[in-house]
Amino acid sequence: MAFYPVIMCGGAGTRLWPASRAARPKQFLDLTGGESLFRQTVRRVAPLAGADGHVLIVAGVSHLPALRRQLADLGVPAVLLLEPKARDSGPAMAAAAAWLAARDPDAVAAFVASDHHIPDAEAFRAALAEAGDHARQDRIVTLGVQPTEPSPAYGYIRPAGPGAAPVAAFVEKPDRDTAARWIGEGYLWN
């Protein structure tokens, strides 16, 4: 089964205004002193595609010039699915899944954000490779992040056990006190 890293590359460019704008959202900015978050993401996940898969990028049509420029600089081939209008993550993921189902029904897809800073690329690839092994057993896999502090800004996962375990519950953004309690009970950021 081929592995397809799917990079979700939306964004309205509002969170880091005035540095980011609609035509240049944060994933295309160099925020870490080296290269854009998008380039870092492509470098991080492209090796997972191997010989049989492809890097698949779902983005708004307005981002096409930045995508082409940054991909050309990296020399990484990718399939671009362009949305005429942003509709959030769900429809973008559905479009990628439909594209994959039509071309490779046995594909394993890993959906990743284009604007995350993940300094340990090797550990991230290892986690995705392990998740891919579970997905090949007809499972839907989500990665939880070990919280560093109680945050009402994130949803949480309550795992049913340690390691690669079933999800007992997905819970939406709690207040800070509830988040602190959940962290003590082993919840992860979703």
Rank of each mutant, 00 (worst) to 15 (best):
residue 14 T to I: 11
residue 74 L to C: 06
residue 79 V to P: 11
residue 104 D to T: 10
residue 95 A to L: 11
residue 127 A to R: 15
residue 65 P to V: 04
residue 56 L to D: 04
residue 167 V to P: 06
residue 44 R to E: 04
residue 48 L to R: 09
residue 91 P to H: 04
residue 110 A to S: 14
residue 13 G to D: 05
residue 39 R to N: 11
residue 174 P to V: 02
residue 119 P to Y: 01
residue 98 A to M: 10
residue 174 P to I: 00
residue 188 L to G: 07
residue 68 R to A: 09
residue 152 P to C: 02
residue 167 V to D: 05
residue 69 R to E: 14
residue 185 E to A: 10
residue 6 V to Y: 06
residue 136 R to N: 10
residue 109 A to I: 04
residue 29 L to D: 08
residue 50 G to V: 03
residue 49 A to Q: 07
residue 115 D to S: 07
residue 180 A to F: 01
residue 107 A to G: 12
residue 109 A to H: 12
residue 100 L to V: 08
residue 83 E to V: 01
residue 87 R to Q: 14
residue 145 V to N: 07
residue 87 R to P: 07
residue 76 V to L: 10
residue 188 L to Y: 13
residue 126 A to Y: 03
residue 86 A to E: 14
residue 12 A to L: 10
residue 141 V to Q: 12
residue 73 D to W: 01
residue 99 W to C: 00
residue 64 L to K: 15
residue 113 A to M: 12
residue 3 F to Q: 07
residue 146 Q to M: 08
residue 38 F to W: 03
residue 104 D to E: 15
residue 99 W to P: 05
residue 88 D to R: 15
residue 102 A to G: 13
residue 84 P to M: 02
residue 41 T to A: 01
residue 76 V to I: 15
residue 93 M to W: 07
residue 126 A to H: 14
residue 148 T to A: 05
residue 65 P to I: 10
residue 151 S to Q: 04
residue 28 F to L: 12
residue 117 H to I: 03
residue 45 V to G: 09
residue 25 P to Y: 00
residue 53 G to Q: 05
residue 161 G to S: 10
residue 186 G to S: 01
residue 14 T to F: 08
residue 4 Y to N: 05
residue 51 A to R: 12
residue 30 D to K: 10
residue 25 P to M: 00
residue 60 G to I: 07
residue 118 I to V: 15
residue 189 W to H: 12
residue 108 V to E: 08
residue 50 G to A: 04
residue 149 E to P: 06
residue 23 A to C: 04
residue 14 T to Y: 08
residue 73 D to G: 14
residue 110 A to D: 07
residue 58 V to H: 01
residue 163 G to C: 10
residue 113 A to C: 14
residue 52 D to Q: 15
residue 112 V to M: 05
residue 4 Y to D: 08
residue 61 V to K: 13
residue 23 A to W: 12
residue 34 G to S: 07
residue 159 P to R: 02
residue 132 G to F: 02
residue 133 D to R: 15
residue 105 P to Q: 10
residue 117 H to Y: 14
residue 46 A to G: 04
residue 26 K to R: 15
residue 71 L to C: 13
residue 31 L to E: 01
residue 162 P to Y: 01
residue 48 L to P: 08
residue 7 I to F: 04
residue 104 D to Q: 11
residue 35 E to N: 02
residue 143 L to F: 00
residue 162 P to E: 15
residue 40 Q to I: 00
residue 127 A to S: 15
residue 34 G to L: 02
residue 7 I to M: 09
residue 120 D to M: 03
residue 188 L to E: 13
residue 159 P to M: 01
residue 121 A to S: 13
residue 165 A to F: 00
residue 106 D to N: 09
residue 12 A to C: 06
residue 187 Y to H: 04
residue 126 A to C: 10
residue 43 R to H: 11
residue 88 D to C: 07
residue 78 A to Y: 03
residue 93 M to D: 06
residue 149 E to Y: 02
residue 189 W to Q: 05
residue 172 E to S: 07
residue 137 Q to C: 08
residue 154 Y to P: 05
residue 8 M to G: 09
residue 158 R to M: 03
residue 2 A to E: 14
residue 14 T to D: 14
residue 91 P to M: 00
residue 8 M to R: 11
residue 74 L to A: 08
residue 68 R to F: 01
residue 169 A to E: 13
residue 142 T to H: 07
residue 124 F to R: 06
residue 142 T to Y: 01
